[in-house]
Amino acid sequence: MTATLTGLDPGTVEDLISSDASLRRFLRGLPGVDQVGADARSAALATRSIKTTAKAWALDLAIRLIDLTTLEGADTPGKVRSLCAKARRPDPADPTTPPVAAVCVYPDLVPVAVEALRGSPVQVASVATAFPAGRAALPVKLADTADAVAAGAHEIDMVIDRGAFLSGRYLQVYEEIRAVKEACGTAHLKVILETGELTTYDNVRRASWLAMLAGGDFIKTSTGKVFPAATLPVTLVMLGAVRDYRAATGRQVGVKPAGGIRTTKDALRHLVQVNEIAGEDWLDPRWFRLGASSLLNDLLMQRTKAATGRYCGPDYVSLD
């Protein structure tokens, strides 16, 4: 690792963001990601076999880590309410099933979710900043964010301006994240990098650092609207970034892969990576989330299988 990664005090950060050039020098000076190595490491970790009691533990953990998401143009208050009911008690037939971490909706549906989740530990997350493209003027994005926060969202998922990032205007991206962070107030900020549009792992690492330097509480892979979304190697690169960032600054940042995680197997593979790359500290809803919708049903079916010994079917879980 280069010297820049060990000991990054606030003064140094001030220097970094003093100009576009210095920020660019820092981000481009980050050690490159060995793409073949990252893919191979990820593939090797994906072969880990998790069984019996460890699997039962991992299934419950995965449920606790889920940001149960519905981000469709066709979302209705009724759909959000039923999703919230499912978030509180994922399996009504089994009260030992833990609730999920959060429900993630569009800003206009935040009041509905807040009302439906009152008195439960489930958080309300809202996407904002002209999700999913992020193509709007900054005042519009800030108003979008402030709206969601005012409506009671505990967490805000913002998208970065990929156009600015890819054309090297890092300072603009940085300042936008700062501004949104300010608009968030006490709400947690998750920064969506949309890794499917960043093309290289080097860019993923740069965007991760940029988002962390700008004060993001979480870095999130994707909107779920662009494919490929959350792949294992991309999450691996981001997990490495949060680990390095904590070593350099002492501040811990969370990671949220989202989009394309549909099966229990995928989820367990992500958990193995979290444990191996970032460390056990991240295996907690405060520091790691899985953005998903259909994954929960698969986890519940596996949980039922573990409890009853019988394979379960989609007739026994809710439609979503």
Partner: peptide, 9 residues
């Protein structure tokens, strides 16, 4: 036995 007990069969 697994097919017989399978809830989706």
């Amino acid at each position: 036995p697994h097919l017989a007990a399978h809830m989706d069969v």
